[in-house]
Nucleic acid binder design. Sequence first.
DNA 1: AGCTAAGTCGAGGGTGCCCTCGAATTCTGT
DNA 2: ACAGAATTCGAGGGCACCCTCGACTTAGCT
Lengths: 184, 184
Amino acid sequence: MVTASRPLRADAARNREKLLAAAAELFAERGLDVPLEHIARRAEVSIGTLYKHFPTREDFVGAIFPERLAALDVIGQKALADPDPWHAFANYLEDLFALQAQDRGLNDILARDLPNAPEVVSACHRGAGHAEILINRATEAGTLRPDYSIADMATLTRAMAQVIRDAPTEWRRFLSIYVEGLRT
Amino acid sequence: MVTASRPLRADAARNREKLLAAAAELFAERGLDVPLEHIARRAEVSIGTLYKHFPTREDFVGAIFPERLAALDVIGQKALADPDPWHAFANYLEDLFALQAQDRGLNDILARDLPNAPEVVSACHRGAGHAEILINRATEAGTLRPDYSIADMATLTRAMAQVIRDAPTEWRRFLSIYVEGLRT
DNA sequence: AGCTAAGTCGAGGGTGCCCTCGAATTCTGT
DNA sequence: ACAGAATTCGAGGGCACCCTCGACTTAGCT
């Protein structure tokens, strides 16, 4: 049911963009839970207009994050191109959390059990796909402990989300200790 | 200014106990942020009465947690009595997080930057004292990486709080990986 | 039994956020 | 320039939580 709706009126298109920009900023600064009213205010648009364009918070997430999640693919590709399995895996983790540390919204999304927007879900699945390959390579090379799994990475991601939130300077150290524990 | 206030009236004392019991349960079940109104309801007491006895949420925390934090001292003593420095340290961590996993309120307190009730603060300091000794012993014995510090343990505690919250069965595995990374 | 200080109650005011809807405005094709 | 459709606006209703205060009740003393 892809209704080929006619193009938006000029003012509407402008407002939509202002809303997206405001939401993108606020999500990155304050996380996914910013009050929608704040978004409307920063966009200099009324709350009613906001709801016209984005009836739910998920609609914002779905409109904003696919683009950002593309960064996930980039670091995934980079890691897959690395010939050293261990190095690829460890660097992937670094890159992943560096990404999370830059964007509170992304941090929330990856930590949360409920990123329901379909675009977001599929991006996460792709990410998990990359991760799985990297894990397998590293275990086969004998450098990563053999029982390590995606589930462990999910746990790690949530833990890191917390560390990033309340001690943004210390996540690298924390991660390096953890990773040390993964080497065989 | 320890005002030796005259004893509470019988009904007041009873209500106070009911409130404490209700708060203790709800903190443990749901964490420190339960609505005060829920506590009043479970205690079968009006909201006004609740405020009479405990004007702020901190008053509840201060009344309930000192007792629970005594468990911290217990595991601290146990660890200090252990002759094997590494074993003492590693077991202390296990015991500490087992405690957190049993009680969402405690989990919140240890993870949060704001446990302001003085009794709670001092209990945390005592805990940190034990931890420091255990760390020193283990580093001197050469089994713990030499740069490990209390600050790292604080970070770990917050990370574990998160893991415990959203994957209560996996914290042991997560911890064991991390601890593996600490051994020299 | 009667008095009074102590305690209890819960309606209600305040805040912050969510979301809706009808009146007012503005774009755009003719 | 105008009509009509599309869009905007923001007041306002709802909800959940916070906290206060004055009217009512009761324990406990004499």
